[in-house]
Design a binder for these strands. Structure first.
Lengths: 142, 142
DNA sequence: CTTGACCCTGTAGTCGCTACAGACCGTAGC
DNA sequence: GCTACGGTCTGTAGCGACTACAGGGTCAAG
């Protein structure tokens, strides 16, 4: 097993395991500038510390809340600059909340139509299929 | 103005306008095999008929309901083969409905967390930002 | 000294479009 | 007939957010 001494730095796979990130995602976040490039060992291996782990967890949690990478980037900038970030952070969260609610509304319209057609289809023995008829005939939802 | 005689076929832009599709999307659907390649004029322009319009509308409505292009492809296959499609169509719709409901559930978890942090942030004058603290401290949702 | 597990890089693929660039066509006005 | 302006054609590249290789280097255990 590899080095797990906390003073010595984590390898990429270990960081991924600890945070729940996919291995390749870690490199991707570095590439797009969300994670700072970690120091390297003599042979070129990345060596992460607790600050990286903390930052990666932050990113992953923001992603779980549905923030885009650009939004995450903005949040991280607030964290890094740390002068009165709450007003701006709150604005970002509120804007994102509105997005989320819009998506929920869209999905609910879909759900409602789908629920109806599935109910009408019943056991599927009908000669005319309500789903197919719906798609041919009407606008999907209003 | 171009030919709008319904007996003579529609050009791509006209088909797009009538169905509400984006111009480029029409060509894309042809490329991926959802729309059959229409006949061409002597100079190579596509010439669509009512069947194309009907099929394109079908695709767009299925997309509005959130079906993936692969699911749309499956639905169109059922339409084309037309032997007792309802059981299979209903199965597709039910599976998709489950997806939609799962997405709604995910989004609702996000909404709930975001709503709380926005409320806690208040007017954004706090020195510690509840959003940023949340992202650093906790798992986002359970 | 070999095996196998890890690491490195760069690149291509995913989904569903969307947006060009650069060429051709077709019509209206002069 | 000439020109301008729009439409159409093709192929290709880009988006977001990863994910999955290929082809190589490194490291520790047996």
């Amino acid at each position: 097993m590899r080095d797990q001494n906390p003073a010595k730095g984590l390898q990429r796979a270990e960081l991924a395991r600890r945070t729940g990130a996919n291995l390749e995602t870690v490199r991707y976040y570095e590439k797009v500038g969300l994670l700072p490039p970690p120091p390297r060992t003599a042979s070129g291996y990345r060596s992460y510390d607790r600050a990286h782990e903390r930052r990666l967890s932050f990113i992953l949690r923001a992603r779980e809340l549905g923030f885009s990478l650009e939004e995450v980037r903005a949040l991280l900038r607030l964290v890094d600059e740390r002068d009165q970030p709450c007003a701006e952070a709150s604005r970002l969260a509120a804007a994102h909340l509105a997005d989320v609610r819009a998506k929920i509304a869209d999905l609910r319209r879909m759900e409602s139509v789908l629920k109806n057609v599935v109910a009408q289809c019943g056991d599927g023995t009908r000669p005319d299929c309500p789903l197919i008829e719906t798609l041919f005939r009407e606008a999907a939802a209003e």
